[in-house]
Design a binder for these strands. Structure first.
Lengths: 154, 154
DNA sequence: GGAAATTATTTCAAGCTTAAAGTTTTATAA
DNA sequence: TTATAAAACTTTAAGCTTGAAATAATTTCC
């Protein structure tokens, strides 16, 4: 998936784009993962879950998290389990629907995330330093559009 | 890593770009992974390794593979182990340097990959259909540049 | 009301992934 | 030489990831 096109033809430019896209995101992701580990002894998936919860102080259901983060249900279960055992997150059973539980950041989790997020934003700024803010806005716009074609069919 | 910015400020546009980039590649990657599983009973990492080997009929060392695919050494060991056990790849010890072994596609592996790659290219064309070929070339160019800033330091 | 379907979540097995530690082989250099 | 370092690779432990199966609670509808 990270290799170059194996043939030439009509789809060639889109294939090249996809390979670039994947290499770029993997490279940046690897660097961020390494720094999160070294500087804060945490992981990207934990960071992702905490980021989602930080935006929803009222809490999120497990299924909200999995939908929002584009990962499977079972995956979220494990990550939340670990965050709970580290005291960064709570799972509160609900009276209304006893199948579900509300996941929230603890006070410690909130403080911890705020610290990490500030540094993280700086890292991203650094790693994407080759793109001007203006160019970043244009690229963002392009990326916004290109999913709509096929997503949400079936 | 997939959530939106948690603050506003100077790095905001780059952070937005990074989040878009990651969401886009994760969405496409997930779709491709699912199709590879359903249609060919294989996985993305296996496909990646085979794609790399397909470009190098003379073979690749394990370390070549790991460098090219941007993954760790130990990771490649496991994937190649499975490909070998499936008869798609061979590991040939070398006379010159007995620490290393040359990894090559078998005849079956070559045929299998060619089939899958053709279909795969079509999928990418479909999934990136919202981007014109012209636009794809421009985006590719932009992505090409934006790593050079920080990569290869230290 | 009660069977049947749906929804929310967890569990499980298999595989992917990394960093770190271990093994074997080759290169360096005193 | 022959110790020491370096290189190539594998192994290991821990965690991430998925899809499928299992569990439990709620809703639907006869």
């Amino acid at each position: 998936m990270v290799a170059g096109p194996t043939s030439i033809g009509p789809g060639k430019d889109r294939l090249r784009l996809w390979i670039r896209l994947l290499r770029a995101s993997r490279t940046i992701e690897a660097e961020l993962r390494e720094r999160l580990k070294k500087e804060f002894d945490t992981t990207l998936p934990r960071f992702d879950v905490m980021a989602a919860l930080y935006r929803s102080p009222e809490g999120m259901l497990m299924s909200d998290l999995s939908r929002f983060l584009l990962v499977s249900n079972g995956n979220v279960t494990g990550i939340v389990d670990r965050l709970v055992s580290e005291g960064l997150v709570t799972r509160a059973r609900r009276n209304g629907d006893r199948r579900t539980s509300m996941v929230r950041l603890t006070e410690e989790g909130t403080k911890s995330f705020a610290t990490i997020a500030a540094v993280h934003e700086g890292w991203v700024g650094e790693l994407l330093g080759g793109v001007s803010e203006e160019e970043a806005r244009r690229l963002t716009g392009m990326l916004k559009s290109f999913r709509s074609n096929w997503e949400g069919r079936e």
